[in-house]
Design a binder for these strands. Sequence first.
DNA 1: TTGTAATTTTGTAATGATTTCAAATTTATA
DNA 2: TATAAATTTGAAATCATTACAAAATTACAA
Lengths: 138, 138
Amino acid sequence: MDYVVEHLRSHDIKPSIQRVAIMRYLMEHCTHPTVDAIYRDLHAMMPTLSKTTIYNTLSLLEEKDALSVLTIDSRNIHYDGDTSPHAHFICRSCRQIFDIPIPEGGSAADPDTPDGFKVEHTHIYYDGLCDKCRSAQN
Amino acid sequence: MDYVVEHLRSHDIKPSIQRVAIMRYLMEHCTHPTVDAIYRDLHAMMPTLSKTTIYNTLSLLEEKDALSVLTIDSRNIHYDGDTSPHAHFICRSCRQIFDIPIPEGGSAADPDTPDGFKVEHTHIYYDGLCDKCRSAQN
DNA sequence: TTGTAATTTTGTAATGATTTCAAATTTATA
DNA sequence: TATAAATTTGAAATCATTACAAAATTACAA
């Protein structure tokens, strides 16, 4: 059984052609794509795919916790098919997003929220300059 | 000397009437306001204040590190006049943002970024349900 | 003080991401 | 096979943000 289809089924999502294509794109690309990037690439292969379907599908995937929504970039929402715990870094110059490992037993995973709060997701974001942009600036 | 004016000066920002009003609003409100909230409230007192000035000023304040930009909410950018280290929680039901203390010596502050990367800011975000919305849902 | 340049503010128009909506298509089921 | 339910689609609407150029204000030199 296709691991993408299995992933969708395990999150209670019916695997339509479009949903599988979008989920597969996310799982096979570690680029943290935006809606536009997903549309640009998938539309080339599936000319009937509409942007509305991408929006619909991404919000369904979010609701069912089948992907991770990255709000690290104030200009665009990015999506990550890898839902395992890791942090992200965005370069303020080239806007590229990088995966950053989270140290084991990190305290950020156990937040000091008020009584009665239920934490569902944790996001750790860094911004600054990546290697290349840093040396280019000097 | 007004502490708001001092704050601006210490970040190399000339304290115009508008900039002081916007910075004061951020420092005196712990509500993590959006551009619209700032405009709504300040426009009532300063009818000539334009939204463009708020956008211009907020991006200047960001560039000079005089405020913190919160990208926790995918729908709107929020601003925080408190630049001391703390995390944030957003309730997925009522969309309210709460300040959360960061444990001393937390590992998130010392990220494992690749060689040559320069980390300028760290953001720790949580989402889930707040106290009230959690009990309202049962 | 006065004139001139530089900076800041403002309103309007343009842009671009996202949502709404209703029709068309596809899938599930009786 | 017929009918209902779910999904997809494209066009139009919405809403946050940016671009831009004119107006107002401030800084500064004569």
